[in-house]
Amino acid sequence: MHSIMILLIIAVITIFLLGYALGRRAGKKEGVTEGMSLVPLEWRKEMFETSICPLCTQELNIRTNYDNIHNREL
């Protein structure tokens, strides 16, 4: 009786471990993909709010109205 119970507990924990390990690894991959797709939008938003490029920390051209956001005169 006790032996069966121990084996049952081992089986339950093993199944939980498999589920947890697989879920965590899949979740990590999904998180990275999602994060990568969100980063450009976040940077764009940050740039519009602060007028500073988050990549090169250069300020937007405020003297001439260029199409490009970066100051080409520099």
Binding site: I6, I10, Y20, A21
Partner: peptide, 20 residues
Amino acid sequence: LLGKVECVLLTVIFFLLTFY
């Protein structure tokens, strides 16, 4: 290498196997 929770769960599994 495995993750903390995985490590603890494996510890419990191997302990129970020994206990068995």
